[in-house]
Every structure is written in structure tokens, then in C-alpha cells.
């Protein structure tokens, strides 16, 4: 090398202690990048609030504690009141448009099968009576966590007609990979 580093005798390296105090004044490069990066961070942050104002897809936040035993009773009453059919041993219910709809996750099924109407908004009341499950609405691919003891209120508005499977995507035991449910929209 033509000349030694100008910082005196001590070599500077990430593996060696810095010279004097470790803070150094920011150069123009760093200052510019820091500004750009921080602005982007603020965009990311405010983006969530902007989507709250303009987006139709929001994270549901309404939830209650519920005794699994009570939840089971409410589901049974709901099915009895609105059942219209049965497929593969699963009750099919057709609740009135815009109403509250129970969806019960337990090892290894989501029940009952729901018959909903397009462009109507329903309040899904979801809970589990055994372990944790993952509610995954296909193929629109919306995903939620289902916890025993907690009632999660998810407002959905199906905007297309067809059969929409529900699958479990939280490991819930040895039958996890066959845990499904169904929403029919017409």
C-alpha cells in the first residue's frame, strides 16, 4: 500500500475497538439514505391507517370471552333453528341475510355448513371447544386464529357465488390435514 491508513497507528476494523468515542458525524450519504428510509417507514405506518379509511378488508377486532360449554349450546340452538339440509352428515344451515352466524371449530371439522347470500353481510361468531384452530377461507384466502374460550366476531360479505371450502391451518392434532368446512354462497 502506498500509505498507511490516516487514522494513526491503530488499524480500524469491525473486529477491533473503534478510535476514541464511537459516534461519528453523519456524512451526506448517510443523511440522505436515513431520510429516505425514515420516510418509507412513516409511509408503511400510516398505510395501515389509510387502509382503515379506504379499504374494505379490515382485521376483525371484536371478540368476547366465552365458556366453551356455553358456546356449544348456542351452536346447537342455532343449528336447530336454521337447518335446511344435510351433506355428508354435516348440517347445512341457511340463516337470514345479515344475521349472526355460528361457526364451530373442533377436532376435526368446521360445522355447520353455511348457506349464505351474495353481497349480504354476516357476523360470523367463531370459537373452538377443544384446541386452537386456524380458520382459512378458500380460495379467497382469508385467515384467522380460533382460540377456545374466545368468541371472535368476523364480519364477512361474500361477493361471489359458489362453494367455498374452509380448511384448518393451525396444527390441531393428528387429523389436522382432514379438517374442513364449507360455505355455499348463492
Amino acid at each position: 500500500m502506498a500509505e498507511e491508513p490516516t487514522q494513526g497507528e491503530r488499524e480500524l476494523s469491525t473486529l477491533l475497538p473503534p478510535k476514541d468515542r464511537w459516534w461519528e458525524r453523519l456524512g451526506p450519504d448517510e443523511r440522505r439514505w436515513l431520510t429516505i428510509a425514515f420516510v418509507w417507514c412513516l409511509v408503511l405506518f400510516s398505510g395501515m391507517y389509510v387502509w382503515l379509511a379506504v379499504g374494505d378488508q379490515q382485521t376483525p377486532v371484536e371478540s368476547y370471552r366465552i365458556d366453551p360449554f356455553v358456546f356449544q349450546q348456542e351452536v346447537d340452538a342455532f343449528v336447530e333453528e336454521h337447518q335446511v339440509d344435510e351433506i355428508q352428515g354435516a348440517a347445512v344451515v341457511e340463516p337470514p341475510p345479515g344475521s349472526e352466524v355460528y361457526l364451530h371449530a373442533n377436532q376435526f371439522a368446521f360445522r355447520p355448513v353455511l348457506k349464505l347470500q351474495k353481497d349480504e353481510t354476516y357476523r360470523l361468531l367463531v370459537s373452538s371447544t377443544d384446541v386452537q384452530h386456524g380458520l382459512s377461507l378458500q380460495p379467497t384466502n382469508l385467515n384467522f386464529q380460533v382460540l377456545p374460550g374466545y368468541l371472535y366476531v368476523i364480519e364477512i360479505t361474500p361477493d361471489e357465488v359458489g362453494e367455498f371450502p374452509i380448511i384448518c391451518n393451525e396444527f390441531c392434532g393428528l387429523g389436522h390435514h382432514v379438517m374442513t368446512g364449507l360455505i355455499v354462497v348463492d
Partner: peptide
């Protein structure tokens, strides 16, 4: 926050 719904547990 909102994007998480698309990927959670997938």
C-alpha cells in the same frame, strides 16, 4: 395489520 389476513398460517 390488514395484509396479515392473507398469509397467516399459510
Amino acid at each position: 395489520m390488514q395484509l396479515n389476513m392473507l398469509v397467516h398460517n399459510t
